[in-house]
């Protein structure tokens, strides 16, 4: 028992392989400080071992460069900051100056506010007009065509000023073909000019007559005799027209009827003059 104990108490050999690397199974010892002297003859471990990047060397070489760069960057930042601060101070000074000049009731402020207000309003209106302008033109043209086209019942024409004078308008259909003329005349009636439109087609026949404005007497044509009776008589005929000769006057309105008849004749004469000079 004692011997066993002594045997057991004897220090054994230390378990080697304390530094035994984990890569042992691969058969290639890691080139650490080879404690176990894994080299075949004690010389430094030879490749092939995995060559790690020489970080230390890299760091040694690039260190100073990075330092310098860092210092340079910091310097750059400081300079930029200083410049920005100066710019900011200048802006503030300008702002203070402007604030002093353009105080609430100072003359420059009065002028500025009014000028700015009008300019902005003008700009706004300009924008609105670019949007609505075309539509306004279209609406006007449509209204114009409708008025001129009243003497061409049943047709849809577009009217443009003709080359034949101020009061003659050419009516063209959808294909652009000339369909007829609308002529504006204003013969003198009983108490003032009677504004009329006379429509003439290409066969030089009157297509229709309409009265646009008149000041004859109060309530003249309240019953609409002109539109539904008198004026219809001119349609489809060639002229020249005369009361009593195919045209019946409105009873009790001879002078007005005469004036309108004269107006139709005038229109046809105008057309004749212009088309066959």
């Amino acid at each position: 028992m004692n011997e066993d104990f002594a045997e057991a108490a004897e220090p054994r050999e230390p378990v080697s392989g304390v530094t035994e690397p984990a890569s042992e199974p691969s058969g290639e010892p890691v080139p650490d400080e080879p404690v176990t002297g894994s080299g075949p003859d004690g010389a430094p471990p030879k490749p092939p071992y995995k060559k790690l990047p020489d970080l230390k060397g890299v760091m040694m070489r690039t260190g100073p460069f990075l330092n310098a760069a860092g210092k340079g960057l910091r310097a750059a930042v400081r300079v930029t900051a200083a410049v920005l601060r100066v710019i900011w101070r200048i802006l503030c000074a300008i702002g203070r100056f402007l604030h002093r000049v353009f105080r609430k009731d100072s003359i420059p402020n009065l002028i500025l506010v009014l000028a700015l207000l009008t300019a902005v309003t003008a700009a706004g209106l300009g924008v609105i007009y670019t949007v609505t302008g075309p539509q306004i033109e279209a609406a006007r043209a449509e209204a114009f065509d409708a008025a001129m086209g009243e003497v061409f019942p049943g047709l849809e024409l577009a009217f443009v000023k003709s080359s034949f004078g101020e009061n003659v308008y050419e009516g063209r259909d959808a294909d652009g073909n000339l369909a007829g003329f609308s002529i504006l005349v204003s013969p003198d009636g009983y108490s003032g000019p009677i504004g009329m439109i006379v429509g003439v087609d290409l066969r030089r026949e009157v297509t229709g007559v309409t009265v646009v404005s008149q000041r004859e007497t109060r309530g003249f044509d309240a019953k609409g005799t002109m539109q539904n009776g008198f004026l219809e008589q001119f349609a489809g005929k060639n002229g020249p027209f005369a009361l009593g000769n195919g045209i019946d006057a409105i009873s009790g309105a001879t002078i007005s009827s005469e004036a309108v008849t004269q107006g139709v004749n005038d229109a046809l004469a105008l057309l004749d003059r212009e088309i066959q000079p």
Binding site: L110, L114, A115, A119, T121, A122, G126
Partner: peptide
């Protein structure tokens, strides 16, 4: 371009009238 004309015309009037009013308010 018309917008610029409008702005300048009206803005100019505003400027002139502002000046007028400013002078009047002092006088």
């Amino acid at each position: 371009m018309t917008i610029w004309y409008a702005v300048m015309a009206l803005g100019g009037m505003g400027l002139a009238l502002g000046l007028l009013l400013a002078l009047a308010s002092r006088l």
